[in-house]
Each structure stands twice: as C-alpha cells, then as structure tokens.
C-alpha cells in the first residue's frame, strides 16, 4: 500500500432504503481502505450497490451506519461529523463522472478554475492553478477552448483536472472510461495513476470496463451490498 496513513477509510458502512417490510439494504458492512497515491477499482454488477457506495463516499446521501475517515478526519461515525457537506465535497472530494459533465458555458480553464474560485481563492490564483493542471494533463493547448470543441478524451482529462483543482485527498471516478475506446481508456487510467502518485490522492474508480480492470493493483468487488477485496495485477 503506497504512502502513509489513509486517503479514505470505510468501516462497517451500511445503507438502508425504506423501512419495515419494504426496507432494502443497499450496503451491508462495507469496509474499504485506499491509501494516498493509490488507485483502486470498485467492480460489481448492476444493482450491486456501487452507486450507493459512491454517493455515500461523496457525501450526497447519508449512510445508515458505519464510519468514514478522509485523511485524518472522521467525517461520518453513525452520523455526519461535519456540518458543511457542501464544503466537504468542494475541498476534500473530487469527482470524475462517466460523461465529463463540463459546464458548457465556461471555457476549459474556467471549468477547472471554478472549484478554487468556489473555495474562495482569487480568480488569478485559480486560473493559474487550472493552467498548471491542464498542462500536467497535456490539454494546456486547449485552455481557451469551449468544452464542445474538445474530443471525448480531452474532455475527460479536463474533468480529471477539475477533480484535482482543490487538491482533494480523495477522488471518486464513476466509470470514467465508459465512453472511450481502449486506447483512450487506458490513457485515462494511466493519467489517474500518474495524478494519484503526483498529488498523493486516493482514487476509487468504479467500473465494469474489462479493458481497464487488469490495470488496478487492488480491486474491490461489490456484490449484494458487500465488498470483497482482491489483489489485482497492475500493468504499470
């Protein structure tokens, strides 16, 4: 496990929808640990609880029980320990979606700079940070372009830059390679690994893309709301 301490740690996490006879346990005693600089895969069939787990990790739905630690801070322990979940998502969790979901009316630089701006950094500092990330992700030459002018791979790299903009300890990637061909999908995984190492970010990649599954050193399988860890064989 690279790095010291935890990027994110989940202990005994569960999520129940509904009550009584209609109650559904979407997550049952989920345990997961991802170190800073590590990229792990989260794999499971449809309805296995992947999205529910991602939403719990992303602090958009409240787990029923369990404990979550991001960096050194416990954010959930049978209840939220942080009052401002919006700020938590903004500053400490990065998101990469299946589709890039860039803001269509902002150019590439401002799509990335928006997060530091929302965190209160000046426009100048935010744009400087955005340009550094875009350069690191090899899309610096498209900094002034509109999202609609980019290819799918470029858009996904901008989305990764946006996720990294506030240097969060954790990035949640929800099927980030789904719309890409093999070559571009592997390139995105390579970028995620590079960024994880470079910025010491813990990255969880939810996927059932057969092309990229072999690239993960560690893989969590999720089935019927429970996780099972499996050692993978990283290509890097």
């Amino acid at each position: 496990m690279p790095g010291m301490g935890f990027g994110i740690r989940i202990e005994g996490l569960s999520k129940r929808y509904g009550e009584g006879d209609t109650a559904v346990d979407a997550l049952k005693d989920v345990n997961m640990t991802v170190a800073p600089g590590e990229v792990v895969g989260l794999i499971g069939p449809s309805g296995s609880g992947k999205s529910t787990l991602l939403k719990c990790l992303g602090a958009v739905i409240e787990p029923t029980a369990g404990k979550m630690t991001v960096g050194d801070e416990v954010i959930f322990d049978n209840g939220w320990k942080i009052t401002d979940l919006r700020a938590l998502r903004r500053d400490r969790i990065g998101f990469v979606f299946q589709a890039p979901y860039l803001i269509p009316f902002l150019d590439v630089t401002d799509n990335v700079a928006l997060l530091p701006m929302l965190a209160g950094r000046s426009n100048g500092d935010s744009r400087k940070r955005a340009k550094e990330l875009l350069e690191a992700l090899d899309v610096g030459h498209r900094a002034q372009a509109q999202p609609s002018q980019l290819s799918g791979g470029e858009q996904q790299r901008v989305a990764i830059a946006r996720a990294l903009a506030n240097q969060p300890p954790v990035i949640l990637a929800d099927e980030p390679t789904a719309p890409l061909d093999s070559e571009r999908a592997l390139a995105v995984v390579r970028i995620l690994n590079d960024m994880a190492r470079q910025f010491q970010t813990a990255i969880i990649v939810v996927t059932h893309d057969e092309k990229i599954i072999p690239t993960f050193k560690r893989i969590y399988h999720i089935r019927d709301g429970k996780t099972y860890e499996e050692a993978g064989q990283a290509l890097h």
Binding site: G58, V60, R86, A87, R89, R90, D91, F95, F97, Y101, I103, P104, L114, L115, L118, A119, R162
Partner: peptide
Amino acid sequence: IREIAVLKLIGTRNRT
C-alpha cells in the same frame, strides 16, 4: 439540470 447537479455536487452554494 445536469450542469446544476454537477455544480451542486462540486460545492456551489444554492445562492450562487
């Protein structure tokens, strides 16, 4: 709607 959901997810204030 999708962009607004993304904006909210990444921490944009409701008042913004």
